[in-house]
Design a protein around this nucleic acid. Sequence first.
DNA 1: CAAATAGTGTCTCTAAGACAATATCAC
DNA 2: GTGATATTGTCTTAGAGACACTATTTG
Lengths: 291, 291
Amino acid sequence: MKHLGRGMKMDANEERYLSAYRMEDYDRPSVTTDIVAFTVRSEEDESWRRDSKDNRLSVLLIQRGEHPFINHWAIPGGFLRMDETLEECALREIREETGVNPVSIMPAGTFSACGRDPRGRVISNAFTTIISEESARLMASDDAVDAKWFDVYYERNEAEAYVLKLVGENVTLEAKLEAKGKQFGRTVFGIVDSGGLAFDHAVILASALETLRDKAESFEVIFDFLPEKFTLTALQKVQETILNVSLLPANFRRKIADYVVETDEYTAGAGHRPAKLYRRKETERNGIRKW
Amino acid sequence: MKHLGRGMKMDANEERYLSAYRMEDYDRPSVTTDIVAFTVRSEEDESWRRDSKDNRLSVLLIQRGEHPFINHWAIPGGFLRMDETLEECALREIREETGVNPVSIMPAGTFSACGRDPRGRVISNAFTTIISEESARLMASDDAVDAKWFDVYYERNEAEAYVLKLVGENVTLEAKLEAKGKQFGRTVFGIVDSGGLAFDHAVILASALETLRDKAESFEVIFDFLPEKFTLTALQKVQETILNVSLLPANFRRKIADYVVETDEYTAGAGHRPAKLYRRKETERNGIRKW
DNA sequence: CAAATAGTGTCTCTAAGACAATATCAC
DNA sequence: GTGATATTGTCTTAGAGACACTATTTG
């Protein structure tokens, strides 16, 4: 057994204590991770001289094949194994259920309300991850995977109420949420209508979406949606899609300038002026850590 | 049993499944919360015409009375009970161990490395909380409580290395940390030398401190350190202490203006111009939620 | 050349930092 | 008045948003 951060050798008393200690003597909850995977998909409208115009933010859901909430749509996830960290668990689950290897994951909150799982006490650690459009397309064409992408429409109507609309190929889910308050920049959501989502997954989705928007605003996540080399216009569209805003190219370019590096390459054959391809700049602020 | 977010009645199959389901059949980790409590203490230098000059940021530690890490200093915390959320657990533990009822708590990360607790697999959910100077003084004078305040000195030397110095009444702990990388605005710390702190608590402390600084910069937490009514100078000193910077009063006042409301009251008897007392303004951004 | 997108220059406005000046108390 | 802190005014600078303009490709 490895001990982190010991400044001292273990003494005989401690040895004795530890060999007598039995975790099974105490109540323990189950622990899961849930991984909210986002992608930005561009319209497949390939008419000449017209780039993909409308991008859509999409989230990955799976239809549960087992009790509880059988046949309901749910966020991918699963139980923590005893030999992995929460981050490793999240990555394993998303790989197992979708075949996709995400670039990175970020924590999106812990959910520990007592009644959230009918099987008993289950603590969920939520993560948000980004899947590039390429990977998402590959995944979608793989029939072995029963996960589906749902377009996300997020609306806030007057009175503190949020509507989260998830549009799949043949299904539309519409969850209603309320804002119970703000705690240190994070909204605390409550479910008004789960809209058919399993467990408290409507709340987890809303929280993950809020995390994503925060990080997209500060350019922390928009790069992961695109290939290694990209045009600034594509990057701008990703941010616009996530934040649901419209930006002026001149201003976007000024703001993003410190985060990207030029390459020598250009796009071609699009019927208009070619665009220079850029690459993400590795700054001190983002020592990129792939899990 | 209460089910959150069901759009459907439970059917007979599900009933059957659930009554057959036994959590005990699966491996589960233990789950704890650790609560990093901060306060800002002013110098007790009460010389005439001189307000308290140097404020110090302090953190609450307890000396462990039990194995493992007996006699080591540790962050207050404990195991999750089956009838409480993580937030409730955090508040219960800090109350039990210090008698203090914090205004609010904020999540500061989850720690799930496999070797972090010699007793077995233990997942820690860290929280950061603020204790007002008044409460901290009351607590410190209560002999029943074995928790002690340590002044925090945080230093980053050249090469990615951080030194966390904790100065108590008779003890000084000095932990050394390395930055393994940045992940979405949060540093991932590793222990180089635990400096005598229990478990991986040096890492948790460093993470909590980083969370605190982030939130202090955006005025999200500085109010909790002070009584309901406060002078702007006191507020400024709190921020300066946490961020370890020096600010110009004029600029601080302009920035803080939107977050505070005047009262009719003034300080008096200080040997200089009285200061107006202010109160925190409740904005849309901070629907304050006391747990 | 026309259509379409890529990319630049610059004006305005706001907010932050620096710094100077004024205000008001206890003694 | 003196010493100390409170509070206000304003100059300068950096960055964001708006908008007009130029550039380069394919057909």
